[in-house]
Design a protein around this nucleic acid. Structure first.
Length: 428
RNA sequence: GGAGAGAUGGCCGAGCGGUCUAAGGCGCACGCCUGGAGAGCGUGUGAUCGCCAAAAGCGGUUCGCGGGUUCGAAUCCCGCUCUCUCCGCCA
Protein backbone atom coordinates (compact mmCIF):
# COMPACT_ATOMS: atom_id res chain seq x y z
CA UNK A 1 0.00 0.00 0.00
CA UNK A 2 1.34 3.41 -0.95
CA UNK A 3 1.80 5.93 1.84
CA UNK A 4 -0.83 8.62 1.88
CA UNK A 5 1.56 11.38 2.89
CA UNK A 6 3.79 10.55 -0.07
CA UNK A 7 0.86 10.64 -2.49
CA UNK A 8 -0.13 13.97 -1.01
CA UNK A 9 3.34 15.53 -1.04
CA UNK A 10 4.76 13.99 -4.23
CA UNK A 11 1.63 13.62 -6.29
CA UNK A 12 3.18 14.24 -9.69
CA UNK A 13 6.11 11.91 -9.04
CA UNK A 14 3.75 9.17 -7.86
CA UNK A 15 1.69 9.44 -11.03
CA UNK A 16 4.77 9.40 -13.26
CA UNK A 17 6.13 6.34 -11.50
CA UNK A 18 2.84 4.47 -11.75
CA UNK A 19 2.68 5.20 -15.47
CA UNK A 20 5.78 3.04 -15.91
CA UNK A 21 3.36 0.18 -15.33
CA UNK A 22 1.30 1.23 -18.28
CA UNK A 23 -1.77 2.04 -16.19
CA UNK A 24 -4.08 5.04 -15.93
CA UNK A 25 -2.65 6.57 -12.79
CA UNK A 26 -4.10 10.09 -13.00
CA UNK A 27 -7.61 9.02 -12.17
CA UNK A 28 -6.59 6.63 -9.38
CA UNK A 29 -4.52 9.24 -7.61
CA UNK A 30 -7.06 12.02 -8.07
CA UNK A 31 -9.65 9.79 -6.40
CA UNK A 32 -7.39 9.12 -3.45
CA UNK A 33 -6.55 12.79 -2.97
CA UNK A 34 -10.24 13.67 -3.04
CA UNK A 35 -11.16 10.94 -0.54
CA UNK A 36 -8.34 11.98 1.72
CA UNK A 37 -9.52 15.58 1.75
CA UNK A 38 -12.99 14.42 2.69
CA UNK A 39 -11.64 12.18 5.41
CA UNK A 40 -9.50 14.89 6.95
CA UNK A 41 -12.27 17.42 6.99
CA UNK A 42 -14.54 14.93 8.77
CA UNK A 43 -11.80 14.00 11.19
CA UNK A 44 -11.25 17.64 12.02
CA UNK A 45 -14.88 18.42 12.80
CA UNK A 46 -15.23 15.18 14.77
CA UNK A 47 -12.15 16.05 16.84
CA UNK A 48 -13.62 19.43 17.68
CA UNK A 49 -16.91 17.90 18.80
CA UNK A 50 -15.07 15.37 20.96
CA UNK A 51 -12.99 18.13 22.51
CA UNK A 52 -16.12 20.04 23.45
CA UNK A 53 -17.75 16.91 24.87
CA UNK A 54 -14.69 16.16 26.97
CA UNK A 55 -14.50 19.71 28.28
CA UNK A 56 -18.20 19.84 29.10
CA UNK A 57 -18.20 16.47 30.84
CA UNK A 58 -15.32 17.55 33.03
CA UNK A 59 -17.31 20.53 34.36
CA UNK A 60 -20.35 18.47 35.35
CA UNK A 61 -18.78 16.82 38.36
CA UNK A 62 -17.81 20.23 39.79
CA UNK A 63 -21.23 21.74 39.11
CA UNK A 64 -22.96 18.93 40.97
CA UNK A 65 -20.60 19.25 43.93
CA UNK A 66 -21.24 23.00 44.14
CA UNK A 67 -25.01 22.33 44.03
CA UNK A 68 -25.33 24.34 40.83
CA UNK A 69 -28.08 22.10 39.56
CA UNK A 70 -29.35 24.42 36.87
CA UNK A 71 -25.98 24.72 35.18
CA UNK A 72 -25.38 20.99 35.58
CA UNK A 73 -28.65 20.26 33.83
CA UNK A 74 -27.79 22.61 30.97
CA UNK A 75 -24.40 20.98 30.56
CA UNK A 76 -26.03 17.56 30.51
CA UNK A 77 -28.38 18.65 27.79
CA UNK A 78 -25.45 19.94 25.71
CA UNK A 79 -23.55 16.66 25.99
CA UNK A 80 -26.63 14.85 24.78
CA UNK A 81 -26.69 16.94 21.62
CA UNK A 82 -22.97 16.56 21.14
CA UNK A 83 -23.17 12.81 21.40
CA UNK A 84 -25.80 12.70 18.72
CA UNK A 85 -23.60 14.75 16.38
CA UNK A 86 -20.58 12.66 17.25
CA UNK A 87 -22.38 9.44 16.45
CA UNK A 88 -23.32 10.74 13.01
CA UNK A 89 -19.89 12.21 12.24
CA UNK A 90 -18.15 9.00 13.34
CA UNK A 91 -20.28 7.01 10.98
CA UNK A 92 -19.40 9.35 8.10
CA UNK A 93 -15.75 9.27 9.04
CA UNK A 94 -15.69 5.48 9.09
CA UNK A 95 -17.31 5.41 5.66
CA UNK A 96 -14.76 7.88 4.32
CA UNK A 97 -11.90 5.86 5.79
CA UNK A 98 -13.20 2.62 4.28
CA UNK A 99 -13.59 4.27 0.90
CA UNK A 100 -10.07 5.68 1.05
CA UNK A 101 -8.59 2.35 2.10
CA UNK A 102 -10.41 0.57 -0.69
CA UNK A 103 -8.97 2.99 -3.23
CA UNK A 104 -5.48 2.78 -1.79
CA UNK A 105 -5.50 -1.01 -1.85
CA UNK A 106 -6.17 -0.98 -5.59
CA UNK A 107 -3.02 1.00 -6.39
CA UNK A 108 0.09 -1.07 -7.10
CA UNK A 109 3.55 -0.06 -5.95
CA UNK A 110 5.29 2.79 -7.75
CA UNK A 111 8.11 1.41 -9.90
CA UNK A 112 11.55 2.92 -9.50
CA UNK A 113 12.55 5.33 -12.24
CA UNK A 114 15.24 2.76 -13.11
CA UNK A 115 12.47 0.42 -14.32
CA UNK A 116 11.80 0.41 -18.06
CA UNK A 117 8.24 1.14 -19.11
CA UNK A 118 6.59 -1.72 -20.93
CA UNK A 119 3.65 -4.00 -21.34
CA UNK A 120 4.78 -7.54 -20.69
CA UNK A 121 7.57 -10.11 -20.67
CA UNK A 122 8.73 -9.09 -24.16
CA UNK A 123 9.82 -5.68 -22.78
CA UNK A 124 11.98 -7.07 -20.00
CA UNK A 125 15.63 -6.08 -20.12
CA UNK A 126 18.43 -8.61 -20.02
CA UNK A 127 20.98 -7.24 -17.58
CA UNK A 128 23.62 -9.91 -17.97
CA UNK A 129 24.06 -13.61 -18.49
CA UNK A 130 26.60 -16.29 -17.70
CA UNK A 131 27.44 -19.98 -17.72
CA UNK A 132 27.86 -21.97 -20.88
CA UNK A 133 24.97 -23.38 -22.86
CA UNK A 134 24.87 -27.19 -22.84
CA UNK A 135 25.67 -29.03 -26.06
CA UNK A 136 23.17 -31.88 -26.02
CA UNK A 137 22.52 -34.51 -28.66
CA UNK A 138 19.10 -34.63 -30.26
CA UNK A 139 18.34 -37.69 -28.16
CA UNK A 140 18.52 -35.60 -24.98
CA UNK A 141 15.54 -36.17 -22.71
CA UNK A 142 13.42 -33.64 -20.83
CA UNK A 143 13.68 -33.86 -17.06
CA UNK A 144 10.38 -35.68 -16.57
CA UNK A 145 11.70 -38.53 -18.69
CA UNK A 146 15.02 -38.51 -16.88
CA UNK A 147 13.26 -38.46 -13.50
CA UNK A 148 11.32 -41.54 -14.55
CA UNK A 149 14.19 -43.62 -15.87
CA UNK A 150 16.31 -42.76 -12.82
CA UNK A 151 13.31 -43.36 -10.56
CA UNK A 152 14.02 -40.20 -8.55
CA UNK A 153 10.74 -38.29 -8.96
CA UNK A 154 7.34 -39.98 -9.26
CA UNK A 155 4.64 -37.71 -10.61
CA UNK A 156 2.01 -40.44 -10.89
CA UNK A 157 2.46 -41.46 -7.30
CA UNK A 158 1.98 -37.86 -6.18
CA UNK A 159 -1.13 -37.78 -8.29
CA UNK A 160 -2.46 -40.79 -6.43
CA UNK A 161 -1.66 -39.38 -2.99
CA UNK A 162 -2.78 -35.81 -3.57
CA UNK A 163 -3.21 -34.67 -7.16
CA UNK A 164 -1.35 -33.12 -10.04
CA UNK A 165 1.51 -30.84 -9.05
CA UNK A 166 2.49 -32.74 -5.91
CA UNK A 167 5.38 -35.00 -6.92
CA UNK A 168 7.02 -37.64 -4.74
CA UNK A 169 10.82 -37.47 -4.62
CA UNK A 170 12.46 -40.85 -4.13
CA UNK A 171 15.90 -42.17 -3.26
CA UNK A 172 18.63 -40.05 -4.81
CA UNK A 173 15.95 -37.59 -5.92
CA UNK A 174 14.90 -37.02 -2.36
CA UNK A 175 18.52 -36.77 -1.29
CA UNK A 176 19.16 -34.22 -4.03
CA UNK A 177 16.36 -32.02 -2.68
CA UNK A 178 17.85 -32.12 0.77
CA UNK A 179 21.31 -31.40 -0.62
CA UNK A 180 20.15 -28.32 -2.51
CA UNK A 181 18.24 -26.98 0.50
CA UNK A 182 21.28 -27.37 2.75
CA UNK A 183 23.64 -25.97 0.14
CA UNK A 184 21.49 -22.86 -0.30
CA UNK A 185 20.98 -22.35 3.44
CA UNK A 186 24.70 -22.68 4.13
CA UNK A 187 25.61 -20.25 1.36
CA UNK A 188 23.05 -17.75 2.60
CA UNK A 189 24.28 -18.09 6.18
CA UNK A 190 27.84 -17.44 4.99
CA UNK A 191 26.59 -14.24 3.37
CA UNK A 192 25.22 -13.07 6.73
CA UNK A 193 21.62 -14.21 6.60
CA UNK A 194 20.23 -15.56 9.88
CA UNK A 195 18.27 -18.74 9.38
CA UNK A 196 14.69 -19.00 10.64
CA UNK A 197 12.12 -21.78 10.44
CA UNK A 198 8.72 -20.16 10.30
CA UNK A 199 5.23 -21.67 10.40
CA UNK A 200 3.88 -22.94 7.08
CA UNK A 201 0.47 -21.46 7.74
CA UNK A 202 -0.30 -17.84 8.41
CA UNK A 203 -3.29 -15.84 9.57
CA UNK A 204 -5.10 -13.12 7.67
CA UNK A 205 -3.05 -10.29 9.15
CA UNK A 206 0.13 -11.81 7.80
CA UNK A 207 -1.41 -12.38 4.39
CA UNK A 208 -2.38 -8.73 4.35
CA UNK A 209 1.02 -7.53 5.55
CA UNK A 210 2.96 -8.78 2.56
CA UNK A 211 0.21 -8.09 0.04
CA UNK A 212 -1.33 -11.50 -0.70
CA UNK A 213 -4.61 -10.40 0.86
CA UNK A 214 -7.03 -9.05 -0.06
CA UNK A 215 -7.61 -9.88 -3.74
CA UNK A 216 -5.04 -12.61 -4.26
CA UNK A 217 -6.55 -15.20 -1.94
CA UNK A 218 -7.29 -17.37 -4.96
CA UNK A 219 -3.57 -18.12 -5.22
CA UNK A 220 -3.33 -19.49 -1.68
CA UNK A 221 -4.70 -22.66 -0.14
CA UNK A 222 -7.11 -21.68 2.61
CA UNK A 223 -7.77 -23.84 5.66
CA UNK A 224 -11.30 -22.71 6.34
CA UNK A 225 -12.05 -24.22 9.74
CA UNK A 226 -9.20 -22.27 11.32
CA UNK A 227 -9.08 -19.44 8.79
CA UNK A 228 -5.40 -19.99 8.02
CA UNK A 229 -3.55 -19.85 4.73
CA UNK A 230 -0.79 -22.18 3.52
CA UNK A 231 2.17 -19.98 2.68
CA UNK A 232 2.85 -19.40 -1.03
CA UNK A 233 6.41 -18.35 -0.13
CA UNK A 234 8.52 -17.95 3.02
CA UNK A 235 8.44 -14.23 2.28
CA UNK A 236 5.06 -14.11 4.03
CA UNK A 237 5.92 -15.46 7.51
CA UNK A 238 9.49 -14.17 7.51
CA UNK A 239 8.64 -10.59 6.55
CA UNK A 240 5.73 -10.62 8.99
CA UNK A 241 8.16 -11.29 11.83
CA UNK A 242 8.73 -7.55 11.58
CA UNK A 243 5.06 -6.56 11.47
CA UNK A 244 4.28 -3.88 14.09
CA UNK A 245 7.94 -3.52 14.91
CA UNK A 246 9.96 -0.32 15.36
CA UNK A 247 13.64 -0.91 14.67
CA UNK A 248 16.66 1.27 15.41
CA UNK A 249 18.59 2.51 12.40
CA UNK A 250 21.59 0.63 13.77
CA UNK A 251 19.69 -2.68 13.37
CA UNK A 252 20.01 -2.41 9.59
CA UNK A 253 20.36 -4.45 7.58
CA UNK A 254 18.15 -7.20 8.98
CA UNK A 255 18.86 -10.38 7.03
CA UNK A 256 16.96 -13.64 7.25
CA UNK A 257 16.91 -16.82 5.25
CA UNK A 258 14.41 -19.63 5.48
CA UNK A 259 13.72 -22.91 3.81
CA UNK A 260 10.04 -23.78 3.47
CA UNK A 261 7.77 -25.73 1.22
CA UNK A 262 5.57 -23.35 -0.76
CA UNK A 263 1.96 -23.96 -1.71
CA UNK A 264 0.33 -22.36 -4.71
CA UNK A 265 -3.02 -23.12 -6.27
CA UNK A 266 -1.89 -21.85 -9.70
CA UNK A 267 -5.48 -21.78 -10.86
CA UNK A 268 -5.81 -21.60 -14.60
CA UNK A 269 -2.34 -22.90 -15.52
CA UNK A 270 -2.07 -25.59 -18.17
CA UNK A 271 -0.07 -26.96 -21.10
CA UNK A 272 3.68 -27.30 -21.48
CA UNK A 273 4.24 -24.71 -18.77
CA UNK A 274 3.13 -27.20 -16.16
CA UNK A 275 4.90 -30.30 -17.48
CA UNK A 276 7.07 -32.09 -14.94
CA UNK A 277 8.72 -29.72 -12.49
CA UNK A 278 7.97 -26.57 -14.47
CA UNK A 279 5.04 -25.59 -12.25
CA UNK A 280 3.94 -27.29 -9.06
CA UNK A 281 1.36 -26.81 -6.34
CA UNK A 282 3.90 -27.69 -3.67
CA UNK A 283 7.58 -26.97 -4.07
CA UNK A 284 10.64 -26.26 -1.97
CA UNK A 285 12.31 -22.90 -1.85
CA UNK A 286 14.97 -21.14 0.18
CA UNK A 287 14.19 -17.47 0.56
CA UNK A 288 16.26 -14.46 1.58
CA UNK A 289 14.69 -11.39 3.17
CA UNK A 290 16.24 -8.07 4.09
CA UNK A 291 14.93 -5.06 5.94
CA UNK A 292 16.98 -2.02 5.04
CA UNK A 293 17.27 1.74 5.42
CA UNK A 294 15.48 3.55 2.57
CA UNK A 295 18.73 5.23 1.52
CA UNK A 296 20.44 1.90 1.00
CA UNK A 297 17.75 -0.42 -0.31
CA UNK A 298 18.82 -0.26 -3.95
CA UNK A 299 22.43 -1.04 -3.08
CA UNK A 300 21.04 -3.96 -1.12
CA UNK A 301 18.97 -5.11 -4.09
CA UNK A 302 22.11 -5.24 -6.23
CA UNK A 303 23.96 -7.07 -3.48
CA UNK A 304 21.19 -9.67 -3.29
CA UNK A 305 21.25 -10.11 -7.06
CA UNK A 306 25.00 -10.69 -6.93
CA UNK A 307 24.53 -13.22 -4.15
CA UNK A 308 21.89 -15.18 -6.07
CA UNK A 309 24.05 -15.02 -9.17
CA UNK A 310 26.83 -16.65 -7.15
CA UNK A 311 24.57 -19.59 -6.32
CA UNK A 312 23.56 -20.15 -9.91
CA UNK A 313 27.19 -19.93 -11.01
CA UNK A 314 28.32 -22.47 -8.44
CA UNK A 315 25.74 -24.90 -9.77
CA UNK A 316 27.18 -24.38 -13.24
CA UNK A 317 23.87 -23.46 -14.82
CA UNK A 318 23.57 -21.18 -17.86
CA UNK A 319 21.59 -18.16 -16.69
CA UNK A 320 20.36 -14.72 -17.57
CA UNK A 321 19.24 -11.92 -15.32
CA UNK A 322 16.23 -9.91 -16.45
CA UNK A 323 15.11 -6.59 -15.06
CA UNK A 324 11.35 -6.69 -15.34
CA UNK A 325 9.62 -3.90 -17.18
CA UNK A 326 6.81 -1.93 -15.55
CA UNK A 327 4.05 -4.03 -17.06
CA UNK A 328 5.50 -7.37 -15.97
CA UNK A 329 6.25 -6.53 -12.34
CA UNK A 330 4.24 -7.85 -9.43
CA UNK A 331 1.69 -5.63 -7.72
CA UNK A 332 3.82 -5.02 -4.61
CA UNK A 333 7.26 -4.53 -6.16
CA UNK A 334 9.12 -1.32 -7.00
CA UNK A 335 11.85 -3.14 -8.92
CA UNK A 336 12.36 -6.81 -9.70
CA UNK A 337 15.13 -8.91 -11.19
CA UNK A 338 14.23 -12.37 -12.44
CA UNK A 339 16.80 -15.13 -12.77
CA UNK A 340 16.25 -17.66 -15.50
CA UNK A 341 18.25 -20.82 -16.16
CA UNK A 342 18.32 -22.65 -19.44
CA UNK A 343 16.94 -26.18 -19.51
CA UNK A 344 18.81 -27.79 -22.39
CA UNK A 345 16.38 -30.51 -23.45
CA UNK A 346 13.23 -28.40 -23.28
CA UNK A 347 15.28 -25.57 -24.79
CA UNK A 348 13.47 -23.11 -22.53
CA UNK A 349 14.44 -20.49 -20.01
CA UNK A 350 12.96 -21.29 -16.61
CA UNK A 351 12.52 -18.69 -13.85
CA UNK A 352 14.29 -19.82 -10.67
CA UNK A 353 14.48 -16.63 -8.66
CA UNK A 354 12.81 -13.29 -8.35
CA UNK A 355 14.59 -10.61 -6.36
CA UNK A 356 12.64 -7.48 -5.49
CA UNK A 357 12.75 -4.21 -3.64
CA UNK A 358 9.34 -3.34 -2.24
CA UNK A 359 10.51 -0.01 -0.87
CA UNK A 360 7.95 0.95 1.80
CA UNK A 361 4.95 -0.71 0.12
CA UNK A 362 4.94 -3.74 2.40
CA UNK A 363 6.35 -1.81 5.36
CA UNK A 364 3.35 0.49 5.26
CA UNK A 365 0.96 -2.45 5.54
CA UNK A 366 3.17 -4.13 8.12
CA UNK A 367 3.69 -0.96 10.16
CA UNK A 368 7.38 -1.78 10.01
CA UNK A 369 9.22 1.35 11.01
CA UNK A 370 12.56 2.49 12.34
CA UNK A 371 14.00 5.43 14.18
CA UNK A 372 17.05 7.36 13.14
CA UNK A 373 19.70 7.63 15.87
CA UNK A 374 18.65 10.40 18.27
CA UNK A 375 15.40 11.08 16.43
CA UNK A 376 11.91 10.58 17.78
CA UNK A 377 10.25 10.31 14.41
CA UNK A 378 9.39 6.89 13.04
CA UNK A 379 9.99 6.21 9.35
CA UNK A 380 8.88 3.27 7.22
CA UNK A 381 11.67 0.81 6.45
CA UNK A 382 12.26 -0.84 3.08
CA UNK A 383 11.72 -4.56 2.59
CA UNK A 384 13.41 -6.78 0.01
CA UNK A 385 13.33 -10.44 -0.75
CA UNK A 386 14.47 -13.00 -3.24
CA UNK A 387 14.53 -16.69 -3.90
CA UNK A 388 17.89 -18.25 -3.18
CA UNK A 389 16.74 -20.45 -4.77
CA UNK A 390 13.52 -22.21 -5.77
CA UNK A 391 14.29 -25.89 -6.25
CA UNK A 392 12.12 -27.53 -8.93
CA UNK A 393 13.34 -25.65 -11.98
CA UNK A 394 16.91 -25.77 -10.75
CA UNK A 395 16.53 -29.54 -10.58
CA UNK A 396 14.91 -29.59 -14.02
CA UNK A 397 17.85 -27.72 -15.54
CA UNK A 398 20.45 -29.77 -13.65
CA UNK A 399 18.95 -33.03 -14.83
CA UNK A 400 18.56 -31.95 -18.42
CA UNK A 401 21.88 -30.17 -18.87
CA UNK A 402 24.06 -32.73 -17.07
CA UNK A 403 22.70 -35.86 -18.70
CA UNK A 404 24.93 -38.36 -20.49
CA UNK A 405 23.80 -41.51 -22.19
CA UNK A 406 24.07 -43.34 -18.87
CA UNK A 407 22.91 -40.97 -16.19
CA UNK A 408 23.22 -37.52 -14.68
CA UNK A 409 26.28 -35.78 -13.28
CA UNK A 410 25.83 -33.84 -10.04
CA UNK A 411 27.64 -30.48 -9.73
CA UNK A 412 30.76 -30.63 -7.61
CA UNK A 413 29.53 -28.19 -4.94
CA UNK A 414 26.72 -30.59 -4.05
CA UNK A 415 28.81 -33.76 -3.60
CA UNK A 416 29.42 -33.20 0.07
CA UNK A 417 25.68 -32.80 0.54
CA UNK A 418 24.45 -35.62 -1.68
CA UNK A 419 27.12 -38.20 -0.92
CA UNK A 420 27.06 -39.20 -4.61
CA UNK A 421 28.23 -37.56 -7.83
CA UNK A 422 26.20 -39.44 -10.42
CA UNK A 423 22.62 -40.66 -10.78
CA UNK A 424 22.56 -43.68 -13.11
CA UNK A 425 19.68 -44.64 -15.39
CA UNK A 426 18.00 -47.81 -14.15
CA UNK A 427 18.72 -50.75 -16.45
CA UNK A 428 15.34 -51.55 -17.91
C1' G B 1 -12.11 -30.64 24.24
C1' G B 2 -13.57 -29.45 29.94
C1' A B 3 -12.79 -26.17 34.38
C1' G B 4 -10.56 -21.86 36.42
C1' A B 5 -7.47 -17.30 36.28
C1' G B 6 -5.78 -13.34 33.54
C1' A B 7 -4.48 -9.43 29.44
C1' U B 8 -2.52 -1.90 31.94
C1' G B 9 3.14 2.27 28.77
C1' G B 10 10.00 -0.50 26.36
C1' C B 11 9.60 -4.02 30.95
C1' C B 12 7.54 -5.07 36.06
C1' G B 13 3.29 -3.48 38.53
C1' A B 14 -0.87 -0.38 41.24
C1' G B 15 -5.60 1.20 40.07
C1' C B 16 -11.94 -1.43 40.33
C1' G B 17 -17.05 5.17 37.88
C1' G B 18 -14.94 12.11 37.83
C1' U B 19 -8.88 14.16 41.37
C1' C B 20 -6.14 8.79 35.28
C1' U B 21 -3.32 14.46 32.33
C1' A B 22 -2.37 6.01 34.65
C1' A B 23 0.79 5.67 41.16
C1' G B 24 5.48 3.30 42.15
C1' G B 25 9.70 0.78 40.34
C1' C B 26 13.14 -0.81 36.41
C1' G B 27 15.13 0.72 31.88
C1' C B 28 16.45 4.73 28.67
C1' A B 29 17.85 10.06 27.54
C1' C B 30 19.58 14.72 29.25
C1' G B 31 21.52 17.75 33.26
C1' C B 32 23.99 18.54 38.13
C1' C B 33 27.94 16.39 40.89
C1' U B 34 33.12 13.95 39.43
C1' G B 35 39.89 14.09 37.15
C1' G B 36 36.83 10.06 34.94
C1' A B 37 33.20 6.47 36.04
C1' G B 38 29.73 4.88 39.64
C1' A B 39 26.50 6.19 43.42
C1' G B 40 23.39 10.19 44.50
C1' C B 41 20.15 14.22 43.01
C1' G B 42 17.03 16.63 39.27
C1' U B 43 14.29 16.73 34.58
C1' G B 44 12.15 14.11 30.75
C1' U B 45 10.26 9.54 28.59
C1' G B 46 5.09 5.60 23.89
C1' A B 47 2.18 5.07 19.37
C1' U B 48 -1.15 7.28 15.95
C1' C B 49 -4.49 10.95 13.46
C1' G B 50 -5.97 16.13 12.71
C1' C B 51 -5.06 21.73 12.68
C1' C B 52 -0.20 24.42 10.99
C1' A B 53 4.26 25.48 4.97
C1' A B 54 7.21 23.37 8.98
C1' A B 55 8.73 23.38 14.04
C1' A B 56 6.62 24.66 18.49
C1' G B 57 1.92 24.39 20.20
C1' C B 58 -3.13 22.78 20.54
C1' G B 59 -6.80 19.00 19.90
C1' G B 60 -8.66 13.68 18.89
C1' U B 61 -7.74 8.42 19.63
C1' U B 62 -5.06 4.65 22.44
C1' C B 63 -5.14 0.37 29.45
C1' G B 64 -5.91 -7.21 24.36
C1' C B 65 -9.98 -6.45 20.16
C1' G B 66 -15.23 -5.07 19.03
C1' G B 67 -19.88 -3.37 20.90
C1' G B 68 -22.98 -1.34 25.04
C1' U B 69 -24.46 1.39 29.78
C1' U B 70 -23.30 6.56 31.66
C1' C B 71 -23.11 13.64 31.36
C1' G B 72 -18.31 10.90 32.32
C1' A B 73 -15.31 3.99 31.69
C1' A B 74 -8.62 1.21 32.55
C1' U B 75 -12.70 0.65 36.19
C1' C B 76 -19.62 -1.66 35.06
C1' C B 77 -22.27 -5.07 31.13
C1' C B 78 -22.13 -8.27 26.45
C1' G B 79 -19.32 -10.72 22.46
C1' C B 80 -14.51 -12.14 20.50
C1' U B 81 -9.19 -13.19 20.55
C1' C B 82 -4.99 -14.57 23.02
C1' U B 83 -2.04 -16.20 27.41
C1' C B 84 -1.43 -19.03 31.92
C1' U B 85 -2.86 -23.18 35.47
C1' C B 86 -5.24 -27.94 36.17
C1' C B 87 -7.70 -32.14 33.66
C1' G B 88 -8.35 -34.95 28.97
C1' C B 89 -6.08 -36.36 24.21
C1' C B 90 -1.47 -36.65 21.60
C1' A B 91 3.97 -36.62 17.72
Amino acid sequence: MLTLSVIREKTEETIQRLKIRNIDADKMIACVIESDKKRRSLQNSLDNLQAELNATSRTIGGLILSQNNLAAEAARKRTGELKEEIREKSRLLREAEDELEKELLQIPNTPSFMVTPGRGAEDNVEVRSGGSMPQLPSSAMPHWELARICDIIDFDLGNKLTGAGFPVYKGMGSRLQRALINFFLDENARAGYIEVMPPLMVNEESGFGTGQLPDKEGQMYHVEVDNLYLIPTAEVPVTNIYRDVILDAKDFPVRNTAYTPCFRREAGSYGKDVRGLNRLHQFDKVEIVQIQHPDRSYETLEEMVTHVEGLVKKLGLPYRIMRLCGGDMGFTSAMTYDFEVFAGAQRRWLEVSSVSNFESFQANRLKLRFREEGSKKTVLAHTLNGSALALPRVVAALLENNQTGKGIHIPEVLHRYTGFDFIPFLSS
